[in-house]
Design a protein around this nucleic acid. Structure first.
Lengths: 159, 159
DNA sequence: AAAATACTTGACAGATTTAGTCAGGTTTGT
DNA sequence: ACAAACCTGACTAAATCTGTCAAGTATTTT
């Protein structure tokens, strides 16, 4: 019951992009530095987010990534689904899965349990928009990059 | 965002034990057969559930496992926590974890997000008791073991 | 007391997934 | 033309998951 780093990094990266909303594209190199994520790895993540229609890329000098929709229309759920696949606690709940493989197909108690829990998880994830996150952040400016760099050098990570 | 087989098998095994509630201990061999779980693997799982105080074992002939508490006091959350560890979407939320390693300690937006989602997940898991599962099952007797065996032999699995 | 039944424990190994790197390539603004 | 910046896919090391195996210990029946 853990999240992979893809999901966590994804939210952090997207948070940076969201902070830049309305100010043009943000370069991947900039995101990588601010959030201390390996640039190559971040490329993978952003590519997935692009395919999912969450961000758009602008190529060429001064290019970068920007949100494809307004922060209020973007939820944590969108990001997690894009990066970790559909939330299907049991494989028989994946979209497109049939009950063919299940020997107790009709009224499988287990399936009902995982299905119900999955719905609640989606609800929780979808109830948090990036607009809310930005608002929580409003005013409180983060540590200065140089200060952060010092902390990271001292072995500090991030959530 | 998947569940490991430990969690899924655990719930299924426990469901069998719960079905036998009040009728004395249920042998592990019986559980393994009914739910088509490898006996050796099931031993591991039941041992963890025992250490977590969810089931109690009775040794000797006619021994087996039985619920340590009433089905109404046993939730899916108890089982998942026992088998998959505490539900901490981010490692900085694990019990006993400090914020020492986090360079944005004070108001880490990411942590707030995962903490809130984690709470909702726990809520969902804890809202389902085995008593409810048993009631849903009431009356509908499962396929006959022999029939099930045939289905399993034909390559059918379970949720 | 012996045998049968059943639980206990820990080591181990193969398969899968994750996390991250690398080496190219392509697009576009100046 | 050049450089900044994104695009793509292959690759690998490490971790985790899934399950097996073997050698116990405990309890009850006979």
């Amino acid at each position: 019951m853990k999240l992979s780093t893809k999901g966590k990094y994804g939210v952090r990266a997207l948070f940076e992009i969201a902070r830049n909303y309305g100010k043009g594209p943000l370069a991947i190199k900039e995101i990588a530095e601010r959030q201390q994520i390996s640039l190559s790895y971040l490329e993978q993540i952003l590519h997935r987010l692009g395919k999912a229609g969450i961000i758009e890329s602008v190529r060429g000098p001064h290019g970068g990534y920007e949100l494809a929709r307004k922060p209020v229309e973007l939820t944590i759920g969108d990001v997690v689904r894009a990066l970790e696949g559909p939330i299907a606690l049991s494989h028989c709940l994946e979209p497109g899965a049939t009950t063919d493989g299940c020997y107790q197909a009709e009224d499988c108690v287990a399936r009902m349990v995982w299905s119900k829990v999955g719905e609640k998880i989606e609800e929780a994830l979808d109830s948090i928009t990036f607009e809310q996150l930005l608002r929580q952040y409003h005013g409180k400016d983060r540590e200065h990059p140089a200060h952060r760099k010092k902390l990271v050098a001292a072995g500090k990570g991030a959530c």
